[in-house]
């Protein structure tokens, strides 16, 4: 495992009703360089680990910037992050990347962000802007006030920023947007899984190149609000309650079961559990299963997906 970096919070700032920007510097040396789309993992005092995208391109000023949306109920991470004050210590992993901006093609680049999903896209947009690639950004949120960095992005992109805000009654016409993209265009997106899956469906329906759709999941938010649900595992003679602020995977680990997992954000499919019987609706929040597989409800990813108000009987390896 790579060693952690001890950092110190240098400033915090509210960017709207529920988003906090946190800047921090290395306590002992300079922070390492990072590339567009990189994220870090913050190691919280209680042992939890949370991933946050680094906002803006690397400037070699020994400052990392992240933005954290407070989720209700908080899964522990966001409440702690919102309580940080200048001078506080924060342990982080070195930057890594699961969401690479490819500079090996000259394809026109388009970006789509839902709310806090804007964070990994900003470094990419800044670099493409510098290289004069003229990126376009579609950015949706509940209200313009609640959408972080909207002013900075407007200054950077001007008419290439397209905003939709629920409170203004404007919505992004996802189908229209995808239909009008140039044939060679690449779309980078980040946001709630509902938005990602909707765009994936449109992308497939229109027969576009699947590798030109790039996305990163955030593992928060689904079709239904978080609610507790009960789970039985007949093979282990186990019944447990998954509370509204933990995932099924976390609940299984809490009672000492060691299910397989890897990404913990609904991408790899290792933590999938098989459904034996179901009362209620599965809120699939992963990107591992295809639309048909999600509809079949034969299995779901325990790291992100939940049952909305009901119970489920499962098995897993």
């Amino acid at each position: 495992m790579k060693s952690l970096i001890r950092t110190q919070v240098s400033s915090t700032k509210l960017l709207g009703p529920d988003v906090c920007q946190i800047e921090f510097s290395a306590a002992d040396s300079a922070l390492p360089a990072y590339g567009p789309g990189d994220h870090i993992q913050v190691h919280l005092p209680d042992g939890l680990v949370r991933s946050y995208s680094l906002v803006g391109r690397w400037r070699n000023d020994n400052i990392y910037k992240i933005a954290v949306r407070r989720t209700t109920p908080s899964r522990g991470g966001s409440a702690f992050m919102h309580s940080l004050k200048p001078g506080d210590t924060l342990f982080i992993s070195p930057p890594t990347n699961n969401f690479a901006l490819s500079l090996s093609t000259n394809a026109p680049r388009f970006f789509l962000a839902g709310g806090i999903g804007i964070t990994p896209l900003i470094s990419m947009i800044e670099i493409l802007e510098e290289l004069d690639h003229q990126p376009n950004l579609y950015y949706a949120g509940r209200s313009e006030k609640s959408m972080p960095f909207v002013n900075e992005l407007h200054a950077l992109l001007d008419s290439r920023l397209h905003i939709a805000a629920d409170d203004k009654g404007t919505r992004l016409d996802l189908k229209g947007i995808v239909s009008n993209l140039p044939v060679s265009a690449e779309l980078y997106m980040c946001g709630p899984v509902g938005m990602l899956n909707a765009v994936k469906a449109i992308w497939t329906e229109l027969g576009r190149d699947p590798t030109a759709l790039r996305f990163e999941t955030f593992a928060v938010g689904g079709e239904f609000p978080n609610a507790s649900f009960s789970v039985t595992v007949p093979r282990l003679d186990l019944t447990l309650e998954v509370s509204d602020n933990e995932t099924l995977l976390e609940a299984l680990e809490r009672v000492g079961v060691e299910p397989l997992y890897n990404c913990r954000k609904g991408e790899c499919g290792l933590c999938a559990v098989e459904v034996i019987s179901l009362e209620g609706t599965i809120d699939h929040r992963d990107v591992f299963y295809s639309a048909e597989q999600r509809e079949a409800n034969a299995a779901f990813c325990s790291c992100v997906s939940r049952v909305a108000g009901g119970k489920v009987s499962i098995d897993f390896p």
């Binding site: 969401f99 690479a100 490819s102 093609t105 590798t211 790039r214 990107v287 591992f288 295809s290 597989q293």
Partner: peptide, 22 residues
């Protein structure tokens, strides 16, 4: 471009699956 276009035994492509393209 280094992007994964086929994965065995699953219906979707993992979004982080790519190799660096120089």
């Amino acid at each position: 471009a280094g992007r994964c276009v086929h994965m065995p035994s699953q219906e979707t492509l993992n979004p982080s699956a790519c190799v660096h393209s120089y």
